[in-house]
Design a protein around this nucleic acid. Structure first.
Length: 495
RNA sequence: GGGUCGUUAGCUCAGUUGGCAGAGCACCUGACUUUUAAUCAGGGUGUCACAGGUUCGAAUCCUGUACGACCUACCA
């Protein structure tokens, strides 16, 4: 007892350790082995729903789960156990179990995991219940559970001990199950359309494909610094060069930037590339993905997100960035390229801007300030300026714009897509323009990836490509206010 | 980075003007053979986040620190 780990020195922990010892003395291993279940809590209740009050089933069931509640009555006891499907009540009697087994029962705690077998019956209050003929202790829990009605409210504890949150909060459990269903529904959709799932490097000597600061790490035996990827884009396009035609990757990206309710340093995206398609094709695919994932998450076409009603009815609204800016900011993209008007607009919207600076970021910021707050229902913003779209093909009718869109819902960006540049010389010029920005102090400008250009030089089919933030999609479809509510183990400071 | 707020029992939370640290659940002891927020009779189990300061006296006031939340900035 004296050399107990710090984590088990609490009063209730010691009580549980004492009970564990007592169970061992009765010849029972408190950490059991394989237990064959005939049913789960939901299937058992479903299968025997026909039982009338007082009636008992002919056949036996065996179930396992975590003890949620104990109502002990001397020589009998009611326990409620839960599994991932729900809860069920168990009924134990000393005269059925026998002296020894009943003694073990008395040593169980809320939180312990047990397996039980017996016949189903319906109590006089109408509840379908397992009349236990035998049970096994499968795992002794050494910590007290959160309060049974309020659960775990402390958000820091919910994030740091997600396992406890999942035990205690059905809603949290439902969110992560929905996440799983959302992701697999996307896979199913794309696989059915002949896409191939790729796995490209998380670590490489260049972090390209997006504008973001990377995490840096070091490979010892190669004695080489490496970056964690900030996008999967450039590798997936190499797959297009290779002739794989329709590819996607669902995976983790890493960006060394701020943390808030919409950003976690590691987050999940899907990027999709389809040869011979274009950004219009990606719009259609985006609509299909939203429709499919909403259904997978059990949502209707109209959903509530944080008290706001969102219609996922397709087709989603489309508006060009220029029209949106004209309408809501009072400036056109070309206006904002004029240094005089740019400074004026910067002042109007409180955006820091030095006259003569490249105006690409300013255009984005005016958009963020004037337009984004109005984008509640799904809206494709199209035709982004070329200077902030270094991987998107130029429009033939106006080479200062690109075939690109972003999808906004509830003031959040959900997707970014374009007709991909497949002209290697054009792509090189764009990278060089980014390099110039980087030289002038823009830390997050894209890096030039010579091998990627080499790939384009071999010939990439024209293609549409799209990235979707999976975490935000799950937030939207589970009505979660923070990205940390949809990431199982969000990044936190060391405590 | 800046601002606001929070941190009290295992959990959820009260704590008045600066005057003995509180409740519910959980837990412990006992009773109880159909309960279900079981009930009944008892029991408070605490580094009031941490470190200083003011004061006769600090959970409470002040300063700093840590962690977290929200807002803001940054960030496709």
């Amino acid at each position: 007892m004296e050399n107990l780990p710090q984590s088990l020195r609490g009063e209730q922990e010691r009580e549980r350790l004492n009970k564990m010892d007592a169970v061992r003395k009765l010849g029972v291993d408190p950490y059991g082995r394989k237990f064959s279940r005939s049913d789960n809590t939901a299937s058992a209740k479903d299968k025997f729903s026909y039982l009338s009050t007082g009636e008992e089933s002919d056949s036996q069931v065996s179930l396992a789960g975590r003890i949620l509640a104990v109502r002990s009555h001397g020589k009998t006891a009611f326990l409620t156990i839960s599994d991932v499907y729900g809860n069920i009540q168990l009924y134990f009697r000393k005269d059925v179990l026998g002296e020894d087994s009943f003694a073990v029962l008395k040593l169980l705690d809320i939180g312990d995991i047990i397996g039980v077998s017996g016949k189903m019956f319906r109590t006089r209050t109408g509840e379908l219940t397992v009349f236990a003929s035998a049970f096994e202790l499968l795992s002794k829990s050494l910590h007290p559970m959160p309060e049974k009605w309020h659960g775990l409210k402390d958000v820091e504890l919910k994030y740091r001990r997600r396992y406890v949150d999942l035990i205690a909060d059905e809603k949290s459990r439902a969110t992560f199950i929905a996440r799983s269903k959302i992701v697999s529904s996307i896979r199913n959709l794309l696989d059915a359309r002949g896409f191939y799932e790729m796995e490209t490097p998380c670590m490489s000597s260049l972090a390209g494909g997006a504008a973001a600061r990377p995490f840096i790490t070091h490979h010892n035996s190669l004695d080489m610094d490496m970056y964690l990827r900030i996008a999967t884009e450039l590798h997936l396009k190499r797959c297009l060069v290779g002739g794989l035609e329709k590819v996607y990757e669902i995976g983790r990206l890493f960006r060394n930037e701020g943390i808030d309710t919409r950003h976690n340093p590691e987050f999940t995206t899907i990027e999709i590339y389809e040869a011979y398609s274009d950004y219009e094709g990606m719009m259609k695919l985006a609509e299909d993905i939203f429709k499919t994932t909403a259904a997978a998450a059990g949502c209707d076409q109209t959903i509530m997100y944080q008290g706001r009603e969102i219609s996922l009815k397709t087709p989603f609204e489309r508006i060009s960035m220029n029209d949106a800016l004209m309408r809501l900011a009072g400036y056109s993209i070309n206006d904002l390229r004029n240094p005089e008007i740019a400074s004026q607009a910067a002042e109007k919207f409180g955006i820091p801007y030095k006259k003569g600076e490249p105006c690409g970021h300013l255009i984005e910021k005016v958009f963020d300030a004037a337009v984004e707050p109005h984008l509640v229902n799904p809206t494709f913003i199209t035709d982004y300026p070329v200077e902030i779209s270094p991987l998107a093909k130029k429009r033939v009718d106006d080479p200062t714009l690109t075939y690109r869109f972003e999808l906004f819902i509830c003031n959040m960006e959900f997707a970014n897509a374009f007709s991909e540049i497949n002209d290697p010389l054009d792509q090189r010029e764009r990278f060089e323009a980014q390099a110039a920005l980087k030289a002038s102090g823009d830390e997050e400008a894209h890096v030039l990836d010579e091998d990627f250009l080499c790939a384009l030089e071999y010939g990439m089919p024209p293609a549409g490509g799209m990235g979707i933030g999976i975490d935000r999609l799950v937030m939207l479809l589970t009505d979660s206010p923070s990205i940390r509510d949809v990431i199982l183990f969000p990044t936190l400071k060391l405590r």
